[in-house]
């Protein structure tokens, strides 16, 4: 029983890692209806930059955080310009962006691999203590708690941003009806740029927070992308709360799978969860049928 409880708590903490990645996806998706397949690689680059700034340059944590966010944002904006914007006007059926974002991810992953060299995946020092936190029979680490707190903070801020600010309304409106949004003075191109900027900030923040947990591993970009997708698909596309719920479910599902099945096949847990949810609730836990068509 305490094993299961531990698995659930660890699952929620790991889910927070996926949740941060999923939020970055969601911000871009909500505004542009583009599912950015390079998002996982952006996070991976952020983790590598964390490693470089903290372990090699020994910069202070705050400086490192700013550098990570800056680099990831810059890459995100470059991606928006060359791999996404040209497809924005072409209608929802055009899947060119699918291929171009995948290709962009391949390019930055290859560059990262060449820069990182032959080093094995190395840990990044956490600013927090490494001592485990014990509550009753449950243990977790401060860094995972930080990830969870960051996720909650990001979710709340995003909800407020979407509900309370003009820009939030404009981003949601553009996703719903690009033409009417344009008629109200809202440029789709500008919204796309803002979405990728925001996505970059969240991806950078995510990368910095999860770096001590996941190690600097250049091969992980694609699996981040996939996990983020599963979190969104399980929670329902376009809903911030859905992304949160989906990510936590995914984390818990993985840990429970590890406990009762075999950790080597952990990836299978995500696939099974995805297939089960799609069979039972095709539009995700918080999704509506409308979001499906995009």
């Amino acid at each position: 029983m305490s094993l299961l409880l531990n698995a659930i708590v660890t699952g929620i903490a790991i889910g927070a890692v996926y949740g941060l990645i999923a939020m970055a996806y969601s911000v871009v998706f909500v505004a542009t209806r583009v599912f950015n397949l390079a998002q996982g690689d952006l996070v991976m680059v952020g983790v590598l930059v964390s490693f470089w700034a903290i372990e090699i340059r020994h910069w202070p944590q705050v400086v490192a955080l700013l550098v990570v966010i800056g680099v990831v944002c810059a890459l995100s904006l470059v991606e928006e310009r060359i791999a996404v914007r040209p497809f924005l006007g072409r209608g929802v059926d055009d899947i060119g962006w699918f291929i171009s974002t995948l290709a962009f991810g391949l390019v930055i992953a290859t560059i990262a691999t060449n820069l990182y060299g032959n080093r094995p995946p190395l840990p990044v020092a956490s600013p927090l203590t490494k001592d485990a936190i014990r509550i009753g029979s449950v243990t977790t680490t401060p860094q995972l708690l930080l990830a969870f707190a960051t996720l909650v903070l990001v979710t709340v801020l995003l909800e407020l941003f979407y509900r309370r600010t003009w820009l939030g309304h404009a981003l949601r409106g553009t996703a719903e009806d690009r033409e009417v949004a344009a008629l109200r003075g809202i440029s789709a191109v500008r919204m796309s740029r803002i979405a990728f900027l925001l996505g970059g900030v969240i991806a950078g923040l995510a990368a910095f927070v999860i770096a001590p947990v996941v190690y600097a591993d250049v091969s992980l970009g694609l699996s981040y992308s996939i996990k983020g997708f599963v979190a969104l698909a399980v929670g329902g596309f376009g809903s911030t709360r859905g992304a949160l719920a989906g990510a936590l479910s995914l984390g818990v599902a993985e840990q429970v799978f590890d406990l009762y099945a075999d950790p080597h096949y952990e990836l299978l847990a995500a696939l099974l969860l995805l297939l089960v949810v799609l069979t039972v609730r095709p539009h995700g836990i918080f999704g509506s049928a409308k979001a499906r068509t995009v």
Binding site: L37, I95, A233, L267, L278
Partner: peptide
């Protein structure tokens, strides 16, 4: 294929990642 849209793309991409791991 039940859902349509880009689910086939994502599920197949997932398998591309999964099969070598398994």
């Amino acid at each position: 294929l039940r859902i349509g849209g880009f689910y086939l793309a994502m599920v197949t991409l997932f398998l591309a990642l999964l099969v070598p791991v398994i």
